[in-house]
Design a protein around this nucleic acid. Structure first.
Length: 494
RNA sequence: GCUCCGGUAGUAUAGUCCGGUCAAGUAUGCGGGCCUCUCGAGCCCGAGACCCGGGUUCAAAUCCCGGCCGGAGCACCA
């Protein structure tokens, strides 16, 4: 009985601490500065799944307060990526929309002595922070800081000349609290705001304010931000703003597949991969192109992703299995013959067989017209000796008579499937060439594997021409593939 | 180096907060079988784990201490 219950138990998301239905506000904070990868997709799905679970509210909020990193095209690529994943958000904003708000909060804190303007060099500051030492600017009075702040805003201070710092605890074990920089001058146009602002908040300030003004109740993020919690909380505390609950978990890693945007960018720049949607990559564009479905991603997150701080290194097999379950019932079967060998039939058939597009689902059929020649995979042909028998699926059993240059001579015996008789796929003479790009594991250890992308070429039955680009098929005894372009498929998984 | 956080089968997870129902559940992968006109799907069976050492307790995967191993952070990036 207990056994029974355990088996049928469905996987669910764990409760969020302190969450109640209808009162959960979450946020999805991408920085529009690079390619969206599966990690972003998972974060999106996690937030969205919780939004659904509690009937809460989800913000899509672009963390775009570093004009030098942000690029306009990425805003939309994230929107598109999340949309494709099935993530729906209730409202959207950019951190860069609220510059005046940051300024007014900064002024409040400057008056209260919670912030100070500092013109130490970066090197000096690093040294002081490491030693826990205070600089001369820290103890100046509020009016001095206000004046400098006004000069910063007016553009009189150039980049690097002055920053605004948090008056924290220079001795703190948590170095994030040792008077971090909260505003700096950036003389670089912003893709959305142009030259309107040169004084930009850093991550900690912008996030602290935004999470409060968005009414965020739960911050779900990766644990590398762990050390910022206290800082962000203190910033809000000084402003009388409410703090959220943090749920922090380790980042997601996939075997042999780097997810860091920096590393992906390097691979592209070095020409190791063919672009940001190279099927070996862990980008959302690659996953999509390769034939992974949003349903599978969602199921994966729901059932196999834990919000825990322990290291996770997922193997692709799990995603394959889930994706297979999603696509199998709706994916048509076709015959593709890699590395084809000619089989000449001593007794020509001259038949047209109609074969089903799917073994169980009602998807209709396709026709194959056979004369005296068929092609079978080299892998199978190489094992056949005169006298051997094999079944050409849906067509006939054949007996090998002879091996000749470039193929096999066989005799069609007719008949049906027999127990123990191997069934193989084949294509008729009237078939066309096809290439399948097979992505492998990009990394073996530390170095990229140059052999990780291979191409299998072969013959496919004529019906293939009618498959639309972007849709999936299963090439029997080969695997699931997606049509990438005319004559080119990408191997999804077995 | 300093600080913080982790450690359940090959992998991902459930269980850990509130010790007994855990001789540890699930999925995937692996081995075997059945079924099937695919090496796919489905069904059945099997092997496989509480990092190590102490302690507390009638009882420890669960609590405490130490060790080992792993990860993260130490930016005018986010």
């Amino acid at each position: 009985m207990a056994e029974e219950r355990r088996r049928s138990e469905e996987r669910r998301l764990p409760e969020l601490p302190g969450a109640s239905a209808g009162a959960v506000v979450l946020r999805l904070p991408p920085e529009p500065s690079g390619y969206m990868h599966l990690g972003h997709a998972f974060h999106g799905l996690i937030n969205y799944l919780y939004r659904e679970k509690y009937g809460g509210f989800l913000w899509l909020r672009f963390e775009d307060t570093n004009p030098r990193k942000v690029r306009a095209e990425y805003y939309d690529s994230y929107r598109e990526g999340f949309r494709w994943c099935g993530v729906k958000w209730d409202a959207e904003k950019n951190n860069s929309d609220d510059m005046d708000l940051y300024y007014s909060y900064a002024e409040m804190l400057l008056e209260l002595g919670g912030l100070y303007v500092c013109s130490c060099s970066q090197e000096e500051m690093a040294k002081q922070r490491a030693e826990g030492a205070e600089c001369s600017h820290r103890s100046m009075d509020a009016s001095w800081h206000m004046e400098k702040w006004d000069r910063m805003l007016s553009g009189a201070m150039r980049e690097g000349e002055a920053v605004v710092r948090f008056k924290g605890d220079l001795q703190s074990q948590n170095t994030a609290l040792r008077d971090p920089v909260l505003f700096r001058v950036v003389e670089h146009p912003h893709p959305l705001k142009g030259d309107r602002y040169t004084v930009w908040p850093t991550y900690d300030f912008a996030v602290a304010i935004q999470d409060a003004v968005c009414g965020v109740t739960h911050v779900l993020r990766t644990s590398e931000f762990m050390f910022r919690d206290e800082l962000q909380d203190q910033i809000r505390q000084r402003l009388g703003l409410r703090n959220p609950v943090y749920v922090e978990y380790s980042r997601f890693e996939f075997e042999g597949t780097p997810l860091s945007r920096r590393r992906i960018r390097e691979l592209i720049e070095q020409g190791i991969v063919r672009g940001w949607d190279d099927p070996r990559l862990g980008t959302v564009a690659a996953a999509r192109r390769r034939g992974f479905t949003p349903e599978a991603l969602r199921e994966f997150v729901k059932s196999y992703v834990a919000l825990t701080p322990s290291r996770k290194l997922y193997s692709w097999d799990l995603l394959y299995a889930i994706n297979r379950r999603v696509i199998d019932p709706k994916t048509p079967r076709l015959f593709f013959v890699p590395d084809p060998r000619r089989v000449v039939l001593k007794n020509p058939m001259a038949v047209k067989v109609s074969v089903p597009l799917h073994p169980s689902a009602d998807m209709g059929s396709r026709a194959l017209e056979v004369g005296d020649t068929v092609f079978i995979p080299g892998r199978d042909a190489d094992l056949l000796k005169p006298g051997d028998r094999v079944r050409l699926k849906y067509l006939t059993n054949i007996r090998i008579l002879d091996r000749v240059e470039g193929g096999i001579v066989a005799e069609a015996e007719g008949g049906g499937p027999e127990p123990g008789l191997q069934v193989i796929q084949w294509v008729p003479e009237k078939s066309h060439r096809l290439e399948v790009i097979v992505p492998g594991m990009l990394f073996r250890g530390e170095v990229p594997d140059p052999q990780s992308l291979s191409t299998v070429s072969g013959l496919v039955e004529a019906y293939e021409a009618s498959v639309p680009v972007g849709s999936a098929v299963q090439f029997e005894r080969f695997g699931y593939c997606v049509k990438d372009a005319a004559g080119v498929y990408i191997f999804t998984h077995p």
